[in-house]
């Protein structure tokens, strides 16, 4: 066991997989010499050399196209898109090409690649460097979508993503890079499509993702002080989605609350609520409730951004009010 930051966990995860498999290569802007703009890939160039760790020009389409072409011809590339907002300039490669080509070719080609990206807000970067876009990816058939909330999951889920035969969108949360956690020694490999119950609770179930997970846990602790036992589930993987775990927990508590950083419309929680409504409606004691960022671009000023993204306080008061009514 060792204390590791989320940021260092990324480098450890990439190292673990590149050491294991010489077909794993890594490319992106400033990922090598500079060690990444978030310093999440420090030391990889020195360790694996410029053939396997490649600095690219500012060419997001070429980065993802190169990853796709390499994946369909035998490599297992890891591509970095620096800020998830930049997916908007290369979404063709993600949504039209990488996601669809296995289906369109009746399985002639497959894409064992991982696209990792700095996602999410809280850093006062403003509307074009703060978005949580995992629901963009979730809306496209053919992509697996993962967003870890802690250093151990970063390593385990990343390893699973690299070893997966299909394209995985790996959303690292920028606001979590400096967070720390206890990480086991040795190789860590997890499974995609498995949600984690972080805290049991008989009264309500809170489902959260990435940076909303620690807030959900803190909120559950505060709610316990006030006599409400809320369980917390870390979804971890939106595609594949572990509906079994979520349906089981929600059926037991009868209340579902999602905590989503994305703007309101079509967030992952909406899909979850629809699944719960269709499949365990009779177990519900009240309406499922989504706690999200309002449907606005993210503002820059700290005072405003803090009002926009769900806070511990907002989670607590929303749930408390709902449980009392």
């Amino acid at each position: 066991m060792a204390q590791l930051t989320y940021r260092d966990a990324v480098a450890r995860a990439i190292t673990q997989e590149m050491e294991r498999d010489p077909n794993v290569v890594f490319l992106g802007e400033d990922v090598g010499g500079a060690g990444g703009v978030f310093k999440a890939t420090v030391g990889l160039l020195e360790r694996f050399g410029p053939e396997r760790v490649r600095d690219t020009p500012i060419s997001e389409q070429a980065i993802l196209g190169a990853a796709m072409g390499a994946a369909m011809t035998g490599l297992r590339p890891i591509a970095e898109i620096m800020f998830a907002d930049f997916f908007a300039v290369c979404w063709d490669l993600v949504a039209n090409q990488i996601a669809k080509s296995s289906y369109m070719t009746a399985g002639q080609v497959s894409f064992p690649l991982v696209i990792r990206s700095g996602n999410g807000g809280g850093l006062r970067f403003g509307a074009q460097h703060s978005q949580s876009v995992e629901n963009w990816a979730m809306a496209v058939p053919g992509l697996k979508v993962v967003a870890p909330s802690n250093p151990t999951d970063v390593i385990g889920l990343f390893a699973a993503a690299v070893r997966d035969p299909d394209p995985v969108m790996f959303f690292e949360h920028k606001g979590l890079y400096s967070s720390k956690g206890e990480v086991p020694d040795g190789e860590i490999v997890d499974t995609l499509g498995s949600a984690k119950v972080l805290r049991p609770g008989g009264d309500a179930t809170i489902v959260a993702l990435a940076a909303m997970v620690p807030r959900a846990v803190a909120a559950a602790e505060a709610l316990a002080q006030r006599g409400i036992e809320a369980g917390v589930i870390d979804v971890r993987s939106l595609v594949p989605l572990d509906t079994q775990t979520i349906l089981r927990e929600v059926s037991a508590t009868g209340r579902l609350f999602t905590v989503e950083e994305n703007p309101r419309l079509c967030g992952w929680g909406a899909e979850l609520v629809s699944i719960v409504a269709e499949e365990c409606f009779n177990y519900l004691d009240g309406p499922p409730l989504r706690i999200t960022t309002p449907h606005i671009p993210l503002p820059s000023a700290d005072a405003l951004e803090d009002m926009a993204i769900p806070s511990v306080e907002r989670i607590v008061t929303t749930i408390e009010r709902a449980m009392q009514s």
């Binding site: 190169a66 990853a67 796709m68 072409g69 390499a70 369909m72 590339p77």
Partner: peptide, 25 residues
């Protein structure tokens, strides 16, 4: 035949990757 692509320009980037993997190996 590694594919025929209907979004103008996309496959030029994808060809890069196939060439890169040949070069790498």
């Amino acid at each position: 035949v590694m594919g025929s692509y209907a979004i103008v320009g996309a496959h030029l980037t994808i060809a890069l990757g196939a060439a890169w993997s040949a070069q790498y190996r």
